[in-house]
Write a protein that binds this DNA or RNA. Structure first.
Length: 328
DNA sequence: ATAAGTCAAGCCGGG
DNA sequence: CCCGGCTTGACTTAT
């Protein structure tokens, strides 16, 4: 079981989400942003390895406008060696990575243009994993999409588009149950039709279900993953923020709920993505709990770097990204 | 230097 | 009928 957190490390003094406005697009800005994002991603992964956090969701914006027609720059070749080196690091340290393409990716839209753009976005994100030379266990996590007033039709449109995806993309796509439209039951039906693995979100399931107990839901979702082609089932873990709107993620890990959740696993293996506001801080607490209960390997033995790594040698020339700097 | 407004993209449901 | 929410805030311009 690996523990991860999404996209952002709040203790890190760099961002892997450097971008710019479409209106100010230029190849120069693109190259600068990608270079900065890949360098930061490398440091972020190193920090994760040192802490024993072996699962990570990368942000979708590593290559700004990565699937937009404005971006005709051959970033795949320009940054090929950087992607490959990242992939080698990931494989060498047993890391698991994924992407979660955003809400604009809607494979079951009745609008062919939206579907085409969605596929292009999946191709972009999947190609980053390909450039890293990662196998099919590195996933692209999406939702079913819209309801459009007809659940069955919406599901069958997803299935039809899924069948036409480029093989390299289809090997990576997994579908997550959501909290309002498509429940675990809907997703399992979709799995029956298509074979797509279902990424279980426990909190969404709490918001939208058909009475399946958590332990059953976990087993059903896990069974949709092929042990070798897809790897250990991934899932998103969160819990309700107390005294907040229903469906809002908690700000930090609720440890007793988390312990209760682990008990529901009954030995099932998952890689857990903690969708919790305070990111790596809660991921570290979850990892500590896992180690107590013997569900995760021991803490790394090597020297553990400080929370904020020192800047790389010869580093940030322009005072960008200096979160707490008073230098002026 | 800091704050406000805006940013490529879709969809649903609450107010 | 507009706006917040969604896996994640960052860029740009005004003050």
């Amino acid at each position: 079981m690996k523990i991860g957190y999404p996209c952002v490390n709040e203790a890190m003094d760099c961002s892997a989400a450097n971008t710019f406005r479409l209106a100010s697009y230029s190849d120069e800005r693109l190259v600068a942003a990608v270079a900065a994002n890949l360098a930061c991603l490398r440091r972020l992964l190193e920090w994760n390895v040192a802490q024993g956090l072996l699962f990570f969701r990368m942000g979708s914006g590593i290559v700004p406008f990565g699937s937009h027609p404005v971006n005709t720059f051959p970033w795949q070749t320009r940054f090929g060696s950087e992607f490959r080196a990242l992939g080698q690091y990931i494989k060498a340290h047993g890391l698991r990575v994924s992407f979660h393409p955003d809400q604009f990716v809607v494979l079951n839209s009745p609008d062919a243009h939206i579907v085409r753009r969605s596929v292009e976005e999946l191709v972009y994100q999947g190609s980053m994993l390909d450039l890293m030379e990662l196998d099919g266990t590195a996933k692209l996590q999406i939702h079913v999409g819209g309801l459009y007033g007809d659940r069955e039709l919406a599901l069958s449109r997803f299935a039809a588009v899924y069948a036409t995806l480029p093989a390299a993309v289809r090997a990576r796509v997994v579908v997550e149950n959501d909290d309002r439209l498509f429940s675990l039951r809907d997703c399992l039906a979709l799995h029956q039709q298509t074979g797509v693995p279902i990424l279980f979100d426990n909190f969404h399931h709490e918001c939208l279900n058909h009475g399946e107990p958590m332990a059953d839901a976990l087993r059903l979702a896990a069974a949709t993953w092929h042990p070798t082609a897809d790897g250990v089932p991934m899932m998103d873990y969160s819990s309700q923020a107390p005294a907040e709107r229903k469906g809002k993620h908690t700000v930090s890990l609720a440890e007793e709920l988390f312990r209760g959740f682990l008990a529901e696993l009954h030995g099932l293996d998952f890689d857990l993505m903690l969708e919790i506001k305070d990111k790596e801080a809660s991921a570290l607490r979850a990892l500590a709990i896992l180690r107590e209960t013997g569900l995760a390997g021991p803490a790394p033995t090597g020297p553990v770097p400080p929370l904020a790594l020192p800047p790389a040698p010869g580093a940030p020339p322009k005072g960008k990204r200096q979160k707490n700097s008073h230098a002026a």
